[in-house]
Nucleic acid binder design. Structure first.
Lengths: 145, 145
DNA sequence: ATTAAAATCATACTTTCGGGTGATGCGACT
DNA sequence: AGTCGCATCACCCGAAAGTATGATTTTAAT
């Protein structure tokens, strides 16, 4: 985490420097200061959105909305019974929504390999061989809605 | 959602206007342009983070339906709506139980290739790319329990 | 401060899925 | 008699999923 923050800071610093260089260029070319400021504002807003998403990490995806909610109740105790970690649970949830490993990786902002590791561990803990089996079993066990 | 986006846009516009006013003030007071730019950058980064978080917030679902496999009832009419044949339905059902294509083939005493054909056709008819997605969608559509 | 668990990522390899294409046989319907 | 839908199967190929192993980094608990 420290590392990420550091890299973001560096990226930000680099961006600012770059912008400063550009600044003089633009100004001598008589581009209005307002437009320039607007561009900076937009750019950093986008950057902010990006940073915000990165830092908060979790963001469930729709894919196929039509979300029907059952009398399902999230129960950490049940997860603990199977030794399923928070991250693994997130992966399981997205799996159940029909996402591919790559899509899950993109959603959680981690690499494909990481998701493969998580899912492999899930299969061990749920004693299943495939994702479809894992999802089915997790539903039976009321681990997911 | 449109409303939120609109309000954010307005807020942004207001901010920009405000900043433009400030701009002249600051400039006549000989505050360095670099510092000013940096402030804008930081401000809009923060704004971006805020907007990003707001936009990705998942709202809780209404507790409308409290049912899921309770009221399931096999309905050939629904299948027909999607053009799903008897055999394809069987494959879909076994798929949802977590069986691999090979296992389904063994269960139905046909070849693996046949199951592949059936499942491919299923994906077409359900407009899905993966078996997990197909199963999920079929459950939503109440095609299977 | 140390330690244990969790999370991350990589590389290499095997298996399973899924798409595309084409072919055959069978019953039903007209 | 012809055609249409369904079921069956084959072959190829690329993509995705899954296994195994090892490593580093974060986080949480003691």
């Amino acid at each position: 985490m420290k590392r990420t923050i550091l890299s973001y800071s560096l990226a930000l610093a680099a961006l600012i420097s770059m912008l400063k260089l550009l600044e003089y260029r633009f100004l001598v070319h008589t581009l209005s200061l307002e437009i320039y400021l607007g561009l900076i504002a937009i750019l950093f807003t986008v950057l902010g959105v990006w940073v915000g998403l990165k830092l908060t990490q979790t963001k469930p995806l729709p894919v196929s909305q039509l979300n029907y909610q059952v009398d399902f109740q999230f129960d950490p105790a049940r997860l603990e019974k199977f030794g399923i970690s928070k991250r693994e649970y997130q992966v399981l949830d997205l799996m159940a929504r029909g996402l591919s490993n790559q899509e899950i990786a993109d959603t959680l902002f981690v690499s494909l390999n990481t998701i493969k590791t998580h899912s492999s561990n899930l299969f061990l803990k749920l004693d299943t061989k495939r994702r479809t089996q894992a999802v089915q079993k997790a539903k039976e066990l009321r681990l997911i809605p």
